[in-house]
């Protein structure tokens, strides 16, 4: 499924990219440069699957898996800045955000998934290289020690109310970032993979949709619903955000600390048709019985 979703994203972006490839402009200082992408070699890492899991209609913890990305990952070492986003707006590639108030050298915040995706498409057209938002798996891999595990604190309880109350307590005990306003790039330091400001006060959009799973008696998880109107955002904690939200908030029945700001960083594909190559490889593997 992971492959299929990535393939779809890659094909869509590539399709949009091709007509513009001939007119690619030279990257300037208002575009993230090649040096600002860390090349991370694929390694095994543990990953708590995003989404909602239940067994017999009762919430259970999402499975924790050891996974490895299909190939190396080129991901920005910092978040896209306000100056970079502004250039996309001036070029007609990104929506103008009325309330955007952040300074040029600071991360762009107040963007929804659609804005972030528009920026990735514009970067693809402008550079001729396929840019996109990371998937949740890729983000967790790149975030390394900064990624948080959001396993349900109570699992297997016969009484779903206990799970509900435990979740409430976990969510409301999260600490609000000390600084809510966006800070200059680098203010939150670097992680062990060289990425800056991971899990600082800007949460980052990913391309991963909200997925509901039913865990069968065998332990296999079956997808019962995929809602791509809601995407995973990542930072100090994982959250699920409707794709048109620019300013997350709680209140009413929603408890806990919402993401302080919504921004993003991009992934660049090394090849034009990475999904196709992988598909071809898998097909070849199947044919030659190497799986």
């Amino acid at each position: 499924m992971l492959l299929a979703m990535k393939l779809k994203a890659a094909l869509t972006a590539a399709a949009l990219a091709s007509p513009f490839a001939m007119t690619a402009v030279t990257p300037s200082d208002t575009l993230p440069s090649a040096q600002e992408f860390a090349a991370l070699k694929a390694e095994n890492f543990s990953y708590r699957i995003a989404g909602d899991f239940s067994r017999d209609g009762k919430p259970v913890a999402a499975p924790l898996r050891q996974i490895k990305l299909d190939s190396s990952l080129a991901i920005m070492t910092r978040q896209v800045t306000a100056a970079e986003y502004a250039r996309c707006v001036d070029d007609g590639g990104c929506p103008r955000i009325p309330q955007a108030s952040t300074k040029d050298d600071m991360p762009m915040v107040g963007v929804n998934w659609r804005d972030a995706t528009a920026y990735a498409r514009w970067m693809t057209r402008t550079t001729g290289k396929l840019h996109r938002l990371p998937t949740d798996e890729e983000w967790v891999f790149a975030a390394a020690e900064k990624a948080s595990d959001d396993a349900l604190p109570v699992t297997g309880a016969a009484d779903p109310v206990r799970v509900w109350i435990a979740r409430y307590e976990a969510e409301t005990s999260r600490e609000r970032p000390a600084l809510l306003a966006p800070q200059p790039v680098g203010a939150f330091g670097r992680n062990e993979r060289g990425l800056q400001d991971v899990a600082g006060n800007v949460w980052e959009w990913t391309d991963t949709c909200f997925v509901r799973h039913d865990v069968e008696p065998s332990g296999a998880a079956r997808v019962t619903n995929t809602n791509c109107g809601v995407r995973v955002v990542q930072g100090a904690h994982r959250a699920y955000m409707t794709d048109f939200i620019r300013d997350p908030r709680t209140g009413g029945c929603a408890a806990g600390v919402p993401p302080a700001n919504l921004g993003f960083r991009l992934v660049v594909e090394q090849e034009r048709w990475p999904g196709l190559r992988r598909m071809a490889e898998r097909a070849a593997d199947k044919v030659f019985g190497r799986l």
Binding site: F210, R212, T224, N225
Partner: peptide, 14 residues
Amino acid sequence: GLGGGALTHVNPGE
């Protein structure tokens, strides 16, 4: 159950 609100979240297609 928040008047049922906590038990009735349905995504499109549910």
